[in-house]
C-alpha cells in the first residue's frame, strides 16, 4: 500500500474545488447543494482519490463486482446520521438498489474508491449487496432471457 494514510479517513479535507483551476479565485458557493448533486462533474483532481479510503485499495469486506447491486439495510437507514461524508451519501443514495458503478457515477467518485467504501459498509451491515452469481454469464437461460428482453425494445 503506497498511499499515505491521512489522520482521519473520514475527514478527507473540504477541498471539493480544485484550488489551482483558472478562475478559482472566487470562493466556492456558500450554500452546500444537496449531497447527491454536488459533484455532477468529478472534481476531485486536487485529492488523490484513495485518500477517501485512507489509502486502502481494497475493503475490509468483500471485493465487489462493479455491477453488484447495493441497497441500504434497515440498520443503514437507522444509523445513517452517524456516518460522515461519502459513506453517508452512499447510504442515502442506495435506498433504492443501485449498482456500484452507478453509485460512483452519481456521486462523482472514482469507482475503485466506491468499491472500498461500499465494501466497508457491507461489512458493517449498513448496506446489503446482491452480487452476480458465479456462472451466470454462461447460463443459457439467462442469456435467452436477456435476448427476449432486448427483442422487446422497439
Amino acid at each position: 500500500m503506497t498511499g499515505n494514510p491521512p489522520d482521519n479517513p473520514d475527514q478527507p479535507g473540504a477541498a471539493r474545488v480544485r484550488p489551482y483551476l483558472p478562475g478559482a479565485e472566487q470562493p466556492p458557493p456558500p450554500q452546500q447543494p444537496a449531497p447527491h448533486e454536488y459533484q455532477q462533474t468529478p472534481d476531485h483532481g486536487a485529492l488523490r482519490p484513495y485518500l477517501l479510503t485512507g489509502g486502502r485499495v481494497s475493503s475490509t469486506g468483500v471485493a465487489l463486482e462493479i455491477e453488484a447491486q447495493v441497497v441500504t439495510t434497515e440498520l443503514g437507514q437507522a444509523t445513517r446520521e452517524g456516518l460522515a461524508y461519502e459513506k453517508r451519501d452512499i447510504v442515502e443514495l442506495c435506498d433504492a438498489p443501485l449498482s456500484v458503478a452507478e453509485t460512483a457515477a452519481r456521486l462523482g467518485l472514482h469507482i475503485g474508491v466506491v468499491r472500498v467504501l461500499v465494501g466497508d459498509l457491507v461489512a458493517l451491515g449498513h448496506l446489503a449487496v446482491l452480487r452476480p452469481e458465479v456462472g451466470l454469464a454462461s447460463d443459457v437461460e439467462t442469456i435467452e432471457k436477456v435476448i427476449r428482453g432486448l427483442q422487446a425494445i422497439s
Binding site: V62, V71, T72, S99, L130, E133
Partner: peptide, 24 residues
C-alpha cells in the same frame, strides 16, 4: 470478512420495492 461466500439471490432487507435485480 473476505472468506464470506457471495450473497445469492436472496431478498434484501427492506422488502417492498427495494429488491435488487440480478445484474448482468
Amino acid at each position: 470478512d473476505s472468506k464470506r461466500s457471495p450473497e445469492r439471490a436472496q431478498p434484501v432487507a427492506g422488502g417492498e420495492g427495494r429488491r435488487a435485480p440480478v445484474p448482468v
